[in-house]
Write a protein that binds this DNA or RNA. Structure first.
Ligand SMILES: [Mn+2]
Ligand SMILES: [Mn+2]
Ligand SMILES: [Mn+2]
Ligand SMILES: [Mn+2]
Lengths: 223, 223
DNA sequence: TACCGTTTTTAGATTAATCTAAAAAACATT
DNA sequence: AATGTTTTTTAGATTAATCTAAAAACGGTA
């Protein structure tokens, strides 16, 4: 019964992410939305995953799904693989940060522990991926980093861009246009009350306006 | 009807290789053997592939299968991907030549033209893979190289190892043990009539005996 | 607490990819 | 040409992964 299929892996990852985000079991509907399938299909999948040996998800009817320890192990390993491949694509193959997610979505399902460990070495055991998301180590431990949204940075304070909340291609491309790449230095010169937009100083040199929406999706770390 | 599945791709590759090797349509049984399935399953798959739009295989009942031009395009592109990934694994991730086939068997199915072209660039557009097999370019053209089996090299002649016919891990590992890697220089000192074994001089320094079976699976190129 | 809208599950169907067993066709050998 | 063996195809079944439609359960509000 063992080898885990791509569909099963993607469900596990969806459940993991939803549980992390909301701190409670993932609903059938929410999972279906991520998987681009229907709630009925998710119910069937959850049933199969919870009957695996060992069980990969916990599930009581109408109460949502969460992962067991073996399930979490698989999910974090998928995230590890996804983020390492994204890093490879950006660092070694010169892809831009908005192009790599889709491809990594496929590469993450390649099953060869040795491959991913060698890739990790080749990349110099990076701790964060091109979007600033932490890459779990082989044991599933994430590196925690104190970060806040740019909307939470006090006026007149300076910080460095370290990640994004929204990682959609359109947002990432827009950030490129604004020169807001990882590592960029931003100082909040003025927060405009009227519409929540922010006048910022970029890399000590350029002044520009960032909408509230942009600032709500940018993670920064104070110096 | 379009996106081609992994199972379909593997069948196309099997048909391509069989047609190349024997110069005639591939039999259901031969394909089944490569795919590790049954003849009945292959018949079903061939039917589906020949009813695709465009058709990928030519097939008349009881007469074997061969590829159409669109089918050949897909097959050579798979071979290109397989061999580029093998090269990546050996050159960049320090895998040995006997470990890479299985992993490449999975990686070859990742669908992203840009990925494979970038990988090709990253590797320096190699013409041959770690087993000495030619890597087709993006248009499907293979680099031809004049090569013979070591059994065909005349006594007292010198040549360089450029490839293997058998690429099974056990043979490759045995070659490593014999220091018969790609690029090694071999001179046939004596061909022993009794059992077809060969006394050779390796890299101008070491003398050793190679069985007929080994020599029948080693490609060399005269200087 | 009874009702109503929403969410989840069940029931039943479909498609791809495989299997086994049986029938049909092709091939080979007297 | 007749017969027997091998190969290929057909028929029918199975499993994973999905769907739609209907039934059941849940949760909030009157
Ligand atoms: Mn995925
Ligand atoms: Mn990422
Ligand atoms: Mn393959
Ligand atoms: Mn190879």
């Amino acid at each position: 019964m063992n080898p885990i299929s791509k569909a099963e892996e993607n469900h596990l990852k969806a459940i993991f992410n939803l549980c992390e985000e909301f701190g409670k079991p993932a609903s059938t509907n929410a999972i279906a939305k991520i998987m681009k399938t229907k709630a009925a299909s998710v119910t069937a999948m959850i049933k199969r995953l919870s009957e695996k040996n060992p069980a990969l998800v916990n599930h009581q009817k109408h109460k949502g799904a969460s992962l067991t320890e073996p399930g979490k192990k698989i999910a974090t390993n998928l995230i590890r693989k996804h983020r390492l491949w994204e890093t490879f694509l950006v660092e070694k193959l010169n892809f831009s940060w908005d192009e790599v997610h889709e491809i990594a979505e496929e590469l993450e399902h390649i099953k060869a522990e040795k491959l991913i460990d060698r890739l990790d070495d080749f990349l110099g055991r990076p701790k964060f991926d091109p979007h600033g998301d932490p890459i779990p180590d082989a044991d599933g431990n994430f590196t925690f980093r104190k970060q806040i949204l740019l909307t939470e940075l006090a006026e007149h304070k300076t910080a460095v861009v370290v990640g994004v909340l929204d990682d959609s291609p359109s947002f990432l491309q827009y950030l490129d246009k604004l020169h807001l790449v990882l590592g960029a230095k931003v100082k909040v010169l003025e927060r405009i009350e009227y519409d929540g937009s922010n006048r910022i100083l970029l890399n000590d040199t350029h002044e520009q306006i960032l909408t509230n929406k942009v600032c709500q999706n940018l993670y920064v770390k104070t110096l």
